[in-house]
Design a protein around this nucleic acid. Structure first.
Length: 546
RNA sequence: GAGCCGGUAGCUCAGGUGGUAGAGCAUGUGACUUUUAAUCACAGGGUCCCGGGUUCAAGUCCCGGCCGGCUCACCA
């Protein structure tokens, strides 16, 4: 461990394993519950984890949480059940009718003609994919690529039309009265009468039709309906007739749909946001009515902003994944999502440096731990093939950030080479070096966006200006002075002006050349960045403000 | 209003089965007799939201209240 390169992060080498150790126990606890549930399954039957994605909106931080967190449980599960296979299904609701025109599509006005149509049937407004749904799925894939989570996509439209849902659909048709009896009490009175678990897809206009089922024929697996009003709020085409509920000619309502997926795919585990608590309860009841057991899982808490208010995408508060990767390595986000999901988390950009440093600490500790300890580490859930597995440095995010103004550059190469001088440890150590490279990029962004705008100008007194001027003049008169000589001269100056505490001169000089109170050894720093330093000293001396 | 979830230091958070309230950061003071992007030592900080109850013992379990959030839509 390098003694000379401590730069901010705490040294916890002899304290107990990570402070966050307790908070990331939940995947193992969930895994234990899951192991109990599946204990009686035949050995080859896989455990099914599921997560959903609505392709009418862009993937966001919540999407990431919804997919990553079950993957953590899955990982924990395989730690205790070594041989049983498992799958993580990301289920795409692309047979859903478009309810409203998304904000981000071009020619929005033109787009309302597609309201009510399944999103898998709507052409891609961006013109690059087979359908709108395909486009959004592409976005999702791109979005998930950096986190190396293993998942398989399953598309609702395909499941319905291929007939894989038929058996479940027949069962729901058989039990439609029971299903209705579960949902109806939760509806407003005026809506109960027309409710049906089924939404036929009109053979004439293609819309997902709501609320018009007038008869159920279980023996023919069909329903009668009138195409009056679609899921998108548009009026129907008036088609009237009888139609099968199988093979993609109808879909079921949301809570029923969730139960259907659980039923057909034999889902064992699913996590969802707390806003879906009640839906999950009702879907569970429906599933029981179909004769199966609801999956395990729990509602997770939402993210809060700095003031503790709920994060709302539409209000523009909160943090996006794009922002996150601008300021922090992606592993740090995974590390963050590993924390206890039962508790609402504050997530705001200014807290990111802290999360980064906590992660770097954990990574140091992880690399130092013996193999058997590593297996218990939360980092096992976080580290990926493509990301650093160790971090042999005491460098901190805060320190690197402070280098941006100190070196007066946003050139990452300059910063990295400076870091190498300070902590030669990571040269040739690929993991650490690549982490440093990412950190430098993030630090530059963070400094520009958050630190620089808050810098307070410092006003120098006349005496202070005199001192700065003296130093600047001396530097000009001694162009060949080395670091040691410069250092000595500054201290002499301090002795001259502050006989009781000569060190008081230093904050002054830091303010002038770096706009901060502390900094590097000044002799060496000025010798290295002489021109810039002299210029700033002169400016500060003449203007009186830095 | 009802149901569910939360409330621990200035900040971010730990506190599996009850057993003397913790960490990191931030803050303050001092030390290092040329400075320190340090290090070291010390300190301040808390009614664990409030009030009851169970218990020898409650941050932890129970009840009630307060505050915040979510849900209570044929949306997902």
């Amino acid at each position: 461990m390098a003694d000379e390169s401590r730069s901010g992060r705490s040294d916890k080498s002899d304290s107990q394993p990570g402070n966050a150790a307790g908070a990331d126990r939940w995947p193992r606890e969930e895994a234990r519950r899951l192991a109990e549930r599946v204990a009686a399954y035949e050995p080859a039957r896989p455990v099914i984890f599921q997560s959903g994605f609505g392709p009418s909106g862009l993937p966001h931080l919540g999407t990431m949480a919804e997919i990553l967190r079950p993957s953590f449980v899955r990982k924990a599960f395989h730690l205790i059940e070594l041989s049983r296979p498992s799958r993580l299904i990301v289920f795409i609701d692309d047979l859903d009718g478009l309810r409203k025109v998304p904000e981000n599509v071009p020619n929005r006005a033109d787009f309302d003609r597609y309201l009510g149509l399944p999103v898998s049937k709507i052409p891609d407004p961006f013109g690059c994919c087979a359908s709108f749904a395909d486009h959004m799925i592409g976005q999702l894939r791109k979005f998930l690529a950096p986190v190396e989570v293993e998942y398989e996509l399953m598309r609702s439209a395909e499941m319905y039309s291929s007939g894989r849902f038929d058996e479940g659909l027949k069962l729901i048709l058989d039990k439609h009265a029971e299903v209705t009896a579960i949902i109806a009490p939760t509806l407003r009175e005026e809506n109960r009468a027309g409710w049906s678990p089924f939404m036929p897809i009109c053979p004439n206009c293609g819309q997902v039709v709501e609320r018009t089922v007038s008869a159920y024929h279980t023996e023919r697996a069909s329903i009668e309906f009138i195409c009056e009003k679609s899921a998108g709020g548009r009026s129907g085409c008036g088609f009237r007739g009888e139609q099968s509920v199988l093979g993609g000619m109808a879909k079921v309502q949301w809570k029923v749909d969730w139960a259907l997926r659980w039923y057909v795919l034999k889902v064992d585990y699913e996590l969802y946001g707390k806003d879906l608590t009640d839906s999950a309860r009702l879907s569970g009841q429906i599933l029981r009515a179909l004769g199966a057991q609801p999956p395990l899982g729990f509602p997770f808490e939402m993210f809060l902003d700095e003031e503790g208010r709920k994060v709302s995408k539409s209000v523009g508060r909160g943090v996006t994944v794009e922002q996150w990767t601008r300021y922090a390595p992606i592993e740090v986000l995974k590390f963050f999502l590993l924390r206890n999901p039962h508790r609402a988390r504050k997530l705001f950009l200014k807290a990111i440096p802290q999360y980064v440093d906590e992660y770097l600490d954990a990574l140091c500790e992880y690399a130092a731990a013996p193999e058997e300890k590593k297996r218990e580490s939360p980092l096992e859930y976080v580290i990926q093939k493509s990301t650093p597995k160790r971090f042999n440095s005491e460098l901190s995010f805060g320190f690197i950030t402070s280098l941006v103004p100190a070196l007066g550059t946003a050139d990452s190469n300059v910063i990295v080479s400076y870091l190498l001088k300070r902590d030669p440890n990571f040269e040739g150590e690929e993991n650490t070096a690549s982490m440093v490279a990412v950190l430098v990029e993030c630090a530059i962004n963070y400094y520009k966006d958050f630190v620089e705008p808050t810098k307070q100008p410092y006003s120098f007194s006349d005496v202070e200006r005199e001192q700065l001027k003296t130093l600047a003049t001396w530097l000009n008169d001694h162009p060949n002075a080395n670091a040691e000589e410069i250092e000595k001269r500054i201290y002499d100056l301090g002795r001259e002006y502050y006989p009781d505490k000569p060190g008081k001169i230093f904050p002054l000089v830091y303010h002038a050349i770096l706009q901060q109170v502390r900094g590097p050894r000044l002799g060496a720093h000025i010798a290295e960045f002489r021109l810039r330093a002299v210029k700033r000293l002169q400016e500060a001396a003449s203007v009186g403000i830095a």
